[in-house]
Structure formats: C-alpha cells, structure tokens
Design a binder for these strands. Structure first.
Length: 139
DNA sequence: CTTTTGACAGCGT
DNA sequence: CACGCTGCCAAAA
C-alpha cells in the first residue's frame, strides 16, 4: 500500500494542534526515517491545505522565506512567540518559543503518530530493504 | 550506476 | 547574535 515518506510527513503535520508546532527534526525522529532535510523537502511540496506553518526549524525560526506569510497564523492561533530585542517593535525578526509551543502529544495522539510511522516502515519491510555493508568503520 | 539538491541541525568562529 | 562549515539522507536528475 505504498505510503510515501512525504505522505507520512503531511499526516504528522496535519496532526499538530493549532497553537503548537514541531520541528523538522522532531518529525524526522518521529518517523524514524530520514532526517530534517527530507522533511523540509517534503513540506516544500506540500499541497494547499497542509498546515505548513506548524512545522518549523529547531531554533524556532519559521520555514525559510516564509516567515512573513506564517506570522498571521501564529498570532491567530496564539502560538507563543518571542521577538528580537523585545524593545519597541522590531517585527520582521521573531521566532517561536519552542519551549512553550513544542507539541507534546497525548497518549492517544502518540498512538496515531506511531501508526503513521509503522505504515511508513512497511514499505521498507523485509525483502525490499537492502543493508548498507558500506559504512563499516574498520579497525 | 553517480551527482546534485534541499522549507535542516549543530557547532565553531 | 550573525555567518560559515560539516554532517545528514532520501529523491530527483
């Protein structure tokens, strides 16, 4: 049943509740497949309707080249932000308070995420997987 | 098959 | 705090 990596990423993104966020790395870790860059690559091709602004960089910075477009969503959803300088209105430079905004899934939500991961792993199950005998670190 | 390419992460300067 | 470098890993060329 062919679950694309990108598909899995979109499902996870869609599972993030309003007002919360996950980092690219978080999602990569969740899926136990690939790394942050693949998640970013997938998000860049996300279809309209995907809550892309809820997937941010580890440091709390919004997706490259999309900070301005993301801002309204954060203010609307009440996502905890921090502003540079916090002196007057230096807007344009802001970031998300990861400590406060980072999504902490409940058990039920975690189960859903696990399911997504499992379906993704199904693709590279026994048989289709080819080990990498290449990277042995040798004595 | 090899090479290039990212909406990244982490550390050093 | 702002760059710059290196590591990363799957997909596309």
């Amino acid at each position: 049943m062919r679950e694309d990596f990108a598909e899995a990423v979109y499902e996870v993104a869609g599972a993030i509740p309003s007002g919360s966020v996950l980092s690219y790395g978080d999602i990569a870790e969740l899926l136990e497949t690939a790394g942050p860059r693949q998640v970013g690559a997938a998000m860049s091709r996300a279809v309209d309707g995907t809550p892309w602004w809820r997937v941010v960089r580890a440091g709390g910075l919004p997706p490259r080249g999309h900070s301005a477009r993301a801002m309204p969503f954060y203010t609307a959803e009440g996502t905890p932000l921090r502003f540079a300088g916090r002196r007057g209105g230096t807007e344009g430079s802001y970031s998300i308070s990861m400590a406060a905004a980072r999504w902490k899934p409940t058990e039920a939500q975690q189960a859903v995420l696990d399911d997504i991961r499992a379906r993704l792993a199904e693709v590279s199950g026994p048989g289709t997987k080819r080990s990498h005998p290449h990277d042995w670190v040798g004595p």
